[in-house]
Design a protein around this nucleic acid. Structure first.
Ligand SMILES: [Zn+2]
Ligand SMILES: [Zn+2]
Ligand SMILES: [Zn+2]
Ligand SMILES: [Zn+2]
Lengths: 169, 169
DNA sequence: GATCAAATGTTATGATATAACATATTAATA
DNA sequence: TATTAATATGTTATATCATAACATTTGATC
């Protein structure tokens, strides 16, 4: 069992103190492994986008990513960023947060899961508090009306503990 | 007790057979009542936007609404639609569906509630299957990490019963 | 090394949303 | 009923987010 297991099972890592450098390195290395396993190509631009998202303490919009790509010498037309993001999202390395039109690196890319996000309105950080399984409420309601769920969006906006303690700015 | 009570408690009304004209009229009348009670002004453009959403069997984007407003002789600059929508959303008459950047009339505007949407990828209809209360899973997770939820987005995309039965197009 | 599929480069445009400031309407009050 | 303040609307311009379309390059396979 990996020594990071216990930590990576904690929810809301983004709102906790942790060695983020180590966290990012570990997820990047996991991404390489997963791509090898699955015959996916983590090309330079895709890797760079994932790296940017892993480094970021807050979610990034596509154009923020694009501009950081440009700073790193990549081409800077919108499709460059969107294509890389499409790849990363489709393959579970990154999630899109609908409420804020932004992207965030997944913190447990191995598990097929339905992520749940807590978005702090104050500090803009986002915690992925994913459960392995879909919301039971959602499942139950879907069954009741014969709806076949393919994808879920579950996002809560509010104040994280830190920002609440700091009080209104 | 209103004779519509039983029906309006059914989830997923949009996916069921119902007298939509009566449904729309009843919700519009409820909106007028609520605005009177609360000292809100349901101005012509706000009423028209709500009417358009109530009539529609599918959610409408802001620019679709804008174009229907124009057809009805209203001014047609984007802020006209967005302002009316802001009012209707803030006061609980309309919900915004993040996943598809569109708006839909609430089917139980009296209850303060956290809506849950089931979005059919095929027919584009959306059912509001709202519960009175927030998802217990979300609440529990939030409590665990000290996050104070102000607003939730819960949306599922998939196939409604009808479209599933009809089979792939 | 020919062929095909996947990925990238590039231009242009589409779709969604808001800032900013002027004007008009309504409500409250002097 | 004038004065004022608050709310709502009119209007121009622009910001932000996202994709269509087509050319070119790269990588994998035969
Ligand atoms: Zn995830
Ligand atoms: Zn915060
Ligand atoms: Zn509702
Ligand atoms: Zn359907």
């Amino acid at each position: 069992m990996s020594p990071r297991k216990a930590e990576s099972d904690l929810p809301a890592q983004a709102f906790r103190q942790h060695d983020h450098g180590e966290c990012a390195r570990s997820l990047m290395s996991a991404a390489h492994d997963l791509c090898t396993e699955r015959g996916l190509r983590l090309t330079p631009v895709r890797e760079k986008v994932l790296e940017l998202l892993l480094k970021s303490h807050a979610p990034l919009g596509a154009y923020a990513i694009l501009s950081e790509l440009a700073d790193s010498g990549f081409r800077a037309q919108p499709p460059v960023a969107y294509r890389a993001l499409d790849f990363l999202v489709e393959n579970g390395f990154v999630h899109r947060i609908e409420k804020i039109n932004a992207f965030v690196a997944c913190n447990q890319p191995r598990d097929g899961h339905s992520p749940v996000f807590m978005i702090c309105s104050d500090c803009q950080q986002v915690a992925e508090t994913s459960a392995k399984t879909q919301s039971p409420t959602l499942d139950r309601t879907a069954r009741k009306i014969g709806f076949d769920i393919q994808h879920t969006v579950v996002e809560a906006q509010g104040l994280c503990a830190q920002c609440r303690e700091r009080g209104p700015q």
